[in-house]
Design a protein around this nucleic acid. Structure first.
Lengths: 347, 347
DNA sequence: CCGGGGTCCGCAATCGATTGCGATACCGGC
DNA sequence: GCCGGTATCGCAATCGATTGCGGACCCCGG
């Protein structure tokens, strides 16, 4: 009977080699599919059998040190609790996993300083690439990283230059679809709650909105657009109140995203506004459980899982084939019609 | 003018040492707060200055290899897209970060095989401990890990033996509070949608429900409890339909969690049931955006962020002080009263 | 002037795996 | 029987940082 030692050190490659009667180098080659052909077939099976019986598991730390590959990518997002991101993260992980890559997640809370130090820590962890969801139009950190040759892919948002590969939804098309839907219902005066104008999503959707109202021959007044300082319910509520208090006339609002739209719901409740009777609302992103809201929120659906998956694929491509030319892709959106939009009340 | 070389190798400790005119060992000690006292003060500042100017960043891989500490813990959850988990993850990360630890996240999708291989991969990544949110009452994998001395903390759910340290909400108290609330409103016949009976949350809440209805002198009939095979909207809807179709009489339902409660909403819509006029509902967890539902869902609030934070703290304690005795803690719950509960209609 | 005790620092081994290079053996061909 | 070639495998360096041990040196008391 073999008694287990008090501290069982996990077996190393040396242990396997010794047990199999070969040099560690040979054991290494036998266990590595890429170099296995350099070793005699019988030796390979012997080593494998020993490795199996000893429960040998290669130490990825040691391997990383030697090969200087960490098999991890950094994932920089503002805040995981924003329901937007979990599906994206899943998409990323589901693509990375088969490639034996892992994602390292950090939350910046939209704080550039925090972002700086977090990216720093990611890099010191030797991540091989970055997937970044916090891009601002002017983003010195990202410029620097690009200059340093750090592999990365932006998601959701882009920088002004557009020189960094990215995966985003077709924002402009989404807004146009939303406006078209409202126009078809009979709305002529539509307001827009624009997101932060230091993000590409904010400005692209804002610009697309202005373009869309012109294209559809609707009321085209600057006063119908209110800017929000952040993508939060509070800001959405504040902006809508601002429009209302300024006496703007409109029968529908296209919110820059779902959270801004949720802020509108608060105002509806607060001021006894009936949605969609008095006011129609459209969100953007189609985050989970929107169908359970009061009323269910019409929204522009963005394929978040695919955004993540596509970004991960693109990053992996860039890592395995550095010559690969960077590109940016737009993913198609769809309008999900629910009960927060209806024909305007006859006035 | 200094021209940058095409490939700039990040500076190593050797580079710093050479530049500062000392041995790498000395540089290492100078840079490490714990051993800094062994080095002359002037030397320390000189090394630090050089390190700073060269932009030296210690290679954590090399360090891990030598110290055999990875500074990472594994986080095993069923599915990140369940809104329950993001706050937990944040809580964990916010505690881990100051300790310079990181979390490695995996989604099991409630698939034991997947879980097996994912835990395997985590262990081969040398995680120092595990935070596990997928515990089932009978859980061979966890038993094995425990026997192997793997440090871990369970969250949300526990195993039957209870011998693994855990952080959970005070489920029993939560259910009792929910039932008490309904009783106070005048409900006498309350149904319960019980979660999967292979999880501690499922059985604890179920048992607590039966106890509570007895304690409050309410209708105590086995027929008023319906089991759900999973914590999903679909199962919640199915279970409620089952109760309805069986002709059970009840004026309120205590759902095992919020998702089951959301399933009830689908049935309300489907069958023209008015909530809370015809039927009151209480959820469990108080996941985000419940206040925006139609009607806003009354729910038992669980401090998810704290669950994560507490679990991370406990795991860190166990890692730094292995002699520390394992314990399990219950976090207090609170009832969040919203509009899905009201007095029963006079019959 | 010698020895004990500190302070400061260098030497070299070590963590575990990978890999370029060289050594050995064996094979077939001439 | 000799030689170029190939198949296998071992040697040793290497990745970058940490750390036990010991050496050099200085100060001071006896």
């Amino acid at each position: 009977m073999t008694t287990t030692l008090p501290t069982v050190r996990p077996p190393t490659l040396r242990d396997v080699a010794r047990e199999a009667g070969v040099h560690p180098a040979t054991a290494s080659r036998a266990l590595n599919p890429a170099t296995r052909s350099l070793v005699n077939g019988e030796t390979v099976t012997r080593v494998q059998r020993v490795a199996e019986s000893l429960g040998y598991r290669p130490n990825p730390i040691a391997r990383s040190l030697k090969t200087s590959r960490s098999a991890t990518v950094g994932l920089v997002i503002p805040d995981l609790t924003n329901p937007l991101f979990p599906p994206i993260v899943r998409g990323i992980e589901d693509v990375l996993a088969p490639a034996h890559y892992n994602a390292w997640l950090v939350n910046t809370d939209n704080d550039p300083d925090r972002e700086d130090s977090l990216v720093d820590s990611l890099r010191s962890r030797q991540v091989e690439g970055l997937i970044v969801a916090t891009a601002r139009l002017q983003h010195p950190l990202l410029d620097r990283l690009l200059a340093e040759g750090v592999r990365m892919v932006l998601i959701n948002r882009r920088t002004a230059s557009g020189s960094i590969p990215s995966v985003t939804a077709d924002d402009a098309n989404g807004i146009d679809t939303a406006v078209a839907h409202l126009a078809r219902l009979g709305h002529r005066r539509i307001a827009h709650l624009a997101g932060p104008q230091d993000t590409s999503t904010g400005v692209v959707r804002r610009r697309a909105f202005l373009q869309a109202v012109r294209d559809h021959g609707l009321a085209d007044e600057p006063g119908l657009v209110a800017d929000c300082a952040s993508w939060t319910e509070d800001e959405g509520a504040r902006a809508l109140r601002e429009l209302l208090d300024a006496g703007r006339e409109f029968t529908a609002v296209v919110a820059g995203n779902d959270l801004l739209a949720l802020g509108c719901y608060d105002v509806f409740h607060e001021r006894g506004i009936s949605c969609p009777l008095d006011l129609s609302v459209i969100g953007f992103n189609d985050m989970p459980y929107l169908d359970k809201l009061r009323p269910p929120l019409t929204s522009v659906r963005v394929p978040h899982y695919e955004v993540g998956a596509e970004a991960a694929r693109m990053l992996l491509e860039g890592l395995t084939d550095p010559s690969r030319h960077p590109r940016s892709i737009l993913l198609p959106i769809t309008l999900v019609e629910r009960a927060s939009t209806a024909a305007p009340a006859a006035s």
